[in-house]
Simulated scan of single mutants.
Amino acid sequence: MKTLENTYTSPERNFTVTEKDINNKNALLTHVLYNEMEDFVKSIITKHAYMAFPLPQLYKLQLLKNAFLNDKLLIKSQIIKYDASELHLLATVYNQAPELNETICKAVFKFPLNAAISNAS
Rank of each mutant, 00 (worst) to 15 (best):
L28P: 01
L29I: 14
L29D: 07
T30P: 04
H31G: 09
V32E: 07
L33T: 03
N35T: 12
E36Q: 08
M37W: 02
E38K: 07
E38P: 04
D39K: 09
D39R: 13
F40A: 02
F40D: 00
F40K: 01
V41P: 02
V41Q: 02
S43L: 06
S43K: 12
S43V: 03
S43E: 15
I44M: 05
I45G: 00
K47V: 15
H48R: 13
H48M: 12
A49Y: 12
A49R: 08
Y50W: 11
Y50C: 12
M51Y: 07
A52D: 08
A52F: 08
F53E: 14
F53D: 14
F53W: 10
P54W: 00
P54D: 06
P54H: 03
L55H: 13
L55G: 13
L55V: 15
L55D: 13
P56S: 06
Q57N: 08
Q57V: 15
Q57Y: 05
Y59S: 11
L61A: 10
L61T: 00
Q62S: 15
Q62A: 09
L63R: 04
L63P: 00
L63G: 01
L63A: 08
L63I: 07
L64M: 12
K65W: 04
K65N: 07
K65C: 02
N66I: 15
N66W: 07
N66K: 11
N66Y: 10
N66V: 11
A67N: 05
A67H: 01
F68W: 07
F68G: 06
F68R: 08
L69I: 15
N70M: 07
N70I: 05
N70S: 15
N70Q: 11
N70V: 06
D71F: 00
D71M: 00
D71Y: 03
K72C: 06
K72F: 04
L73G: 00
L74T: 03
L74G: 03
I75P: 00
I75N: 01
K76C: 13
K76Q: 09
K76G: 04
S77F: 05
Q78I: 13
Q78P: 06
Q78N: 07
Q78T: 14
I80K: 06
Y82Q: 14
Y82S: 13
Y82D: 15
Y82E: 15
Y82C: 14
Y82K: 11
